[in-house]
C-alpha cells in the first residue's frame, strides 16, 4: 500500500491533481459552511451543470475551457442567487436551469466530437484530466479564494448569521453576497475537472454538515470543515488510484464515511 502511494507521487500529473485537489477542497469547504447555513447548498449542483454546458460549448468551438466556463458560471451564479431571493419557487427554477444546461452540453457534444473520454471526465471527474495550463490557472485562483475568505471571514459570519441585522447596521450585504457568489463559481469550475459535474456539490455540502454534527461555534465548524475536506480529498484520491475507480466518487465516499463516523460519535456523546 505504502509503496503504491510513493509510486503514485512519482507521476507529475498525479502531483498536479493532488495540489489542485487540496486547494479546491479547501475553498469548497470554507465557502460551504456559509452556503449550507444560508440554505444555498444546492447552488453548487446547479452551477456545475451550467459549467458542463459551458465546457462542452468551449470544446466544440476549440476555445480554452476554463476561460469560457468561469465567466459563464459567474453570471449563472448571480442569476441563481437572484432567483432564490425573489422567487419562492426558486428550487424548481434552479432545476430547470441546470437540466437545460446539461441538455445543451450533451447535444453540443454529440454534434461535435461525440461522447469522448473528455466529456466522460467532465461528468464523473478524473485526476488525469488536469493539464499544466489548468494547474497554472487553478493555483492562483484557489489561493485568491482562500485569502479573500480569510480577510472577510468576520463579515461573512455576520451576514450568514443574521443578514437583516447586518443590513440594518449599515454593512454592505450586497457586495459580500456577490463576493461569496463569485468565489463559489470559481471553485465549482476548477473542482469540476477533478470531481465531475455530477459530484462537485458534495465537496461543498459534506464537510460543513459533517462538522456541524460535533462543533458548535462558527470558527470550529469552519476549521473542522477544512480539515475534513482536505483529508477526504487525499484519502479519496489515494484509494481511487489504487482501486482504479473515478476520483470524484472515491472522494465523496470518504466524505460519506467521515459523516457517518461523526454522526456515531455525536450519538454516543448525547
Amino acid at each position: 500500500m505504502l509503496n503504491s502511494i510513493f509510486a503514485m507521487f512519482s507521476y507529475s500529473f498525479l502531483i498536479r491533481a493532488v495540489i489542485v485537489g487540496i486547494l479546491v477542497s479547501l475553498c469548497a469547504s470554507l465557502l460551504g459552511v456559509s452556503l449550507v447555513l444560508k440554505r444555498f447548498s444546492m447552488i453548487g449542483d446547479g452551477l456545475s451543470h451550467v459549467g458542463f454546458g459551458a465546457l462542452a460549448i468551449a470544446g466544440a468551438l476549440n476555445l480554452a475551457p476554463l476561460a469560457v466556463a468561469i465567466p459563464v458560471v459567474i453570471i449563472a451564479t448571480f442569476f441563481l442567487l437572484k432567483l432564490k431571493e425573489t422567487n419562492k419557487d426558486g428550487d424548481s427554477m434552479v432545476a430547470i436551469i441546470s437540466t437545460s444546461s446539461l441538455a445543451i452540453g450533451i447535444t453540443v457534444v454529440s454534434f461535435s466530437t461525440g461522447m469522448t473520454t473528455d466529456i466522460n471526465n467532465y461528468m464523473f471527474g478524473s485526476i488525469l484530466s488536469l493539464s499544466k495550463g489548468d494547474v497554472f490557472l487553478s493555483i492562483p485562483l484557489t489561493i485568491a479564494v482562500i485569502v479573500l475568505f480569510i480577510l472577510f471571514y468576520n463579515r461573512i459570519f455576520s451576514i450568514t448569521f443574521d443578514e437583516r441585522f447586518a443590513k440594518a447596521t449599515g454593512q454592505n450585504v450586497e457586495i459580500l453576497n456577490t463576493l461569496i457568489a463569485v468565489l463559489t463559481a470559481v471553485t465549482i469550475v476548477l473542482g469540476m475537472r477533478l470531481m465531475g459535474a455530477l459530484l462537485i456539490s458534495a465537496l461543498i455540502i459534506f464537510p460543513a454538515l459533517t462538522s456541524m454534527k460535533l462543533f458548535k461555534s462558527f470558527l470550529s465548524v469552519t476549521i473542522s470543515s477544512a480539515v475534513v475536506s482536505v483529508l477526504s480529498m487525499l484519502v479519496g484520491m489515494i484509494l481511487s488510484y489504487n482501486f482504479n475507480t473515478p476520483a470524484g466518487a472515491g472522494i465523496v465516499l470518504v466524505n460519506l464515511t467521515i459523516y457517518i463516523i461523526f454522526g456515531i460519535i455525536r450519538f454516543f456523546n448525547a
Binding site: F161, F165, T169, G170, F215, S217
Partner: peptide
C-alpha cells in the same frame, strides 16, 4: 442548529 458561539455573535455587532 446554527453553529455560533455567544462571543462570535456579540463581536459581530462591532463590525458596523
Amino acid at each position: 442548529s446554527f453553529p455560533a458561539s455567544v462571543r462570535e455573535i456579540v463581536l459581530s455587532g462591532t463590525i458596523a
